[in-house]
Design a protein around this nucleic acid. Structure first.
Lengths: 331, 331
DNA sequence: TACCCCAACGTTACCGGTAAACCTGACAAA
DNA sequence: TTTGTCAGGTTTACCGGTAACGTTGGGGTA
């Protein structure tokens, strides 16, 4: 049914090896031979078998594994897109997985993916189980950790510092006269990166002599609803806040919606700040004060670092992709 | 460096085949042998080689390919999530790609993925190039077409009818007194499914004797900005519309934002209807009238259909996953 | 006692590519 | 004429699993 190199070789009157060389665009055959082989391959509907190729020689795998925290995250959709575009152009295939912010699930995923002997791996975050790190080192293939920058990566790292995002936003809001800050987040234990932003934010206020007043962290997906009800809860406990920092833009927009429904004026009565740079945040009633993350650029940079390493080029271990605080009309 | 079955076999004093059987949890060995083999495997840090396994026997591949229109789409993020959860639990790996609404790009992707001899494929939409269909048939592996229902699938189909979505929304708006309808879309040529919704919508109004007045289709990503400016353009051409149907919720929210900025009252002056069921749409200032698509359920159903087929169970060719028109406060 | 059967293994062939080494004839230079 | 070189091939071995089948020894049964 399915043709293989040998079928083509027989039909074209050459050896298997010659067919292999022709189809991979190598050298060592005449033009005449090439056209004949190509025609036969076309005629028989030959489809290259990467399984056999990758298995037979350990150089040829074009598989790249990538693990993100959640596939439903709008931000990671863009990162995936950046990676896919950069890799796809070069003939690599992307194998994906989600770890739901759990290092243990990440380890399970890595174990699965390693068994396909991928050319490289892209992981999100810098917290991995010891077993994961052991697997990665033994596998020997290049690894890029993205999103959360680390100065001592397993191999390579592309991203930014979440703590700095929080600090920068805290300092910005302090400069604009905010003194009584609150925080609304979600998935406290799970999302270490959101926690890092919160820590950076708190630190900025503490150092300025205005420690953060209160925080509300829901055990829920960090979406619009969580932002809406999180702010409701927070304000019911503490009416004197003058600014609230949200885990991300979706939640901040939920918070904005809550303010609107209760007649709380933004930014006069309450400042609102998000994080992430959702497209929606830029056009909604009031432009949201937030930190824009260059998601696609991170994906692209990660893919390019991986490919460069695969080609044996020198790659710097740590690539910083800067975020940008965008002052809006809400804080 | 890396241990293989033979290394384990030597160390444990058994044959390669026995090790293989033990590690796959089969039969034909004593308990004593099993513990010994397991210990040695653990000690040597053995990692199963799926490449070799899938290559050696054509039964064993646990690779599933999935192609979506755009990785940045919020809706498809949820579909991916549904697929990944259902497949991951069963030990399958997901290989993804994006076709940017282009059958040609889809064909290129299928060609790449087929060369990995995947256990199955999940494609989005029902429009494929003849070469794609040919490849799929030759490959012989199960194929699920999702999102856009077809009555004559290549193999299996899971989804709903986009035309019906449009028709249903048209009829709903007609029942609520709307007579002069407009449409704002994006990526006209590329997105055949959006076009189907528009066609269904137009037909509903035509049949009722109130043909659609005007439409604006931007050659841009179907996001907030496109909705905002698309509505601006449409209304500048035609001030007497009493309802506008948008390509999707993101665009509808952009349209809402435009109305708010110009003091156009919704729904009194103008009705707004979207499609898709973004979480944001449900909580924003006014709850958006839209069609909610059960994204995760579609992903789950597709994965389950695929797995059932792989297990040789009988699977119905076409699975309808119903959408739900949600009346909001905007139309 | 002879025979069969079965658990618990071992042997062999094979999947479809690729790397590496080898071959061959034509032509040029010594 | 001999030798070297090179284009244009061919041959062989091998990757690491798995399927299919062969083997062996001990116990039950006729």
């Amino acid at each position: 049914m399915k043709a293989n190199l040998e079928d083509i070789a027989r039909e074209a009157g050459v050896s298997k090896m010659t067919v292999s060389r022709v189809l991979r665009g190598g050298q060592g055959f005449s033009n005449e031979t090439r056209t004949r082989v190509m025609q036969v391959a076309e005629k028989l509907g030959y489809v290259h078998n990467k399984l056999a190729a990758a298995f037979g020689s350990d150089q040829a795998s074009t598989l790249v594994g990538m693990c993100v925290p959640r596939l439903t995250s709008g931000l990671f959709g863009h990162v995936l897109d950046g990676v896919d575009r950069a890799l796809g152009r070069l003939g690599y295939q992307l194998m994906i997985g989600a770890n739901n912010h759990s290092p243990q699930e990440e380890e399970d995923w890595v174990r699965q993916v390693i068994s396909w002997r991928p050319a490289g791996l892209i992981l999100s975050g810098r917290h991995h189980t010891p077993a994961t790190i052991d697997l990665l080192r033994k596998a020997g293939s290049p690894v890029v950790e993205i999103w959360d920058l680390t100065t001592s990566p397993v191999d390579m790292s592309v991203g930014f510092s979440h703590a700095d995002c929080g600090t920068e936003m805290g300092q910005y809001l302090l400069r604009h006269g905010r003194r009584r800050a609150g925080y609304v987040g979600a998935l406290a234990r799970a999302d270490v990166m959101g926690q890092a932003r919160r820590d950076g934010f708190e630190q900025a206020f503490s150092r300025a002599g205005h420690p953060m007043v209160d925080a509300e962290v829901l055990h829920d997906a960090p979406g619009f609803y969580a932002g809406y009800y999180g702010l409701e809860t927070l304000l019911s406990r503490c009416r004197t806040l003058d600014v609230v920092y949200f885990h991300n833009d979706e939640m901040a927009i939920g918070g904005l919606a809550f303010c609107q429904s209760r007649g709380i004026r933004v930014p006069e009565d309450l400042g609102i700040a998000g994080w992430g740079g959702m497209e929606a945040a830029a056009i909604l009633p009031r432009r949201l004060t937030t930190t824009v993350v260059p998601t696609t650029a991170i994906g692209k940079a990660a893919a390019e670092a991986l490919v460069a390493r695969l080609k044996g080029e020198h790659v710097q271990d740590v690539t910083v992709v800067p975020t940008r605080l965008v002052p809006g009309e809400t804080g």
